[in-house]
Design a protein around this nucleic acid. Structure first.
Lengths: 175, 175
DNA sequence: CGTGGAGTTGAATACGATCAACACCGGTGG
DNA sequence: CCACCGGTGTTGATCGTATTCAACTCCACG
């Protein structure tokens, strides 16, 4: 339903696996609605290590909110994990869109949903062990397990690929 | 500006330092707009340890979005750190409010601001050391340093009070 | 006063990071 | 078709950061 409206301000584009849609350090940023496929957003820290901020599969939106809110340069890279079809739009135009169509409730509730997801993530990062975070990841996103290489899951969980590998071995043995 | 409108659906109440406005595990939840004073929201994990999710000083809103979004019971406690004056409202009524007054842009941009803050926090939790997180906390919230006991800052940063104390000692010596 | 919470400090511990070696494919080119 | 290669994941040894547990000081507040 959101898709029809988005059509008015967005252009559709295809990206191949591994293609970068947006890099960090840029002056402008876009919003990306995933029609088909799978994207990830991530930062690269001072030590050159990647940290995945979000995955986005069908129906999800990715954008660098830091850029929009704080007016700095972009901090996120956005990349296709699978061949993907994506609606690209200008975040500023969202406001016009809303006023015209009164899709406010939808906008607000999807922003709140996102906040809810992030709330869980923050609380988990602070209180749960790596293993607990991995197990709850599997429960919440069972589909991603097969679509995303393990090292990216580790990066999303905030641990190293080696650590995740050991946790998996441990889970199998402990069973 | 938001305050005048909020008046229509909210009631004002005063809380003393240490008072609990809301507990985890409840069926219903409220929104809290801080007019004066300082609140915190936090969880208590399986080991009985507190983890602070947010501080809210004048002009900020606290609410348990998990409750609203996922329909579970509340997961957050909300408590007054200082004597506070708070507008209490029912989150569901926000929608009516918006439609009537077309304060949509304000709503959307404040939700985005919140997402921006959380984005920073998540990325920091994943990539920065405890000391780095503490130093950036001081930069971003210089006022809170004096209003909030140290152990709560530690809890917000996701570390133990002892660890924060050692970091502080280390900063002074290293200087 | 004296009592309990907040903060500091130290020793022992645990969890995950780092570094390194190796197995296992899945492609690519000879 | 096979040999080679780079990337992914596994495993082990060592290291570092923060936790845990404990003792102690210092106030604020009764």
């Amino acid at each position: 339903m959101f898709e029809q409206i988005l059509n008015q301000i967005a252009v559709s584009r295809n990206f191949k696996k591994g293609e970068v849609l947006q890099s960090a350090g840029q002056e402008s940023s876009k919003g990306y609605f995933v029609k088909k496929g799978l994207l990830r957003s991530f930062t690269i820290d001072d030590n050159g290590k990647e940290h995945i901020y979000m995955f986005a599969s069908e129906g999800w939106i990715l954008s660098d909110i830091e850029k929009e809110v704080f007016g700095n340069k972009t901090v996120l890279y956005i990349e296709a994990i699978e061949d993907s079809e994506v609606y690209i739009f200008n975040p500023g135009q969202i406001y016009q869109l809303d006023l015209q169509h009164e899709y406010t409730d939808y906008m607000i509730s999807s922003l709140m949903k996102r906040i809810g997801v992030m709330q869980r993530r923050i609380l988990a990062l602070m209180s749960a062990s790596a293993r607990e975070r991995y197990e709850s990841f599997l429960q919440i996103y069972p589909d991603l397990q097969n679509r995303v290489p393990q090292k990216m899951i580790a990066s999303y969980l905030g641990i190293t690929p080696e650590a995740l590998s050991k946790i998996r071995g441990q889970i199998i043995r402990n069973k």
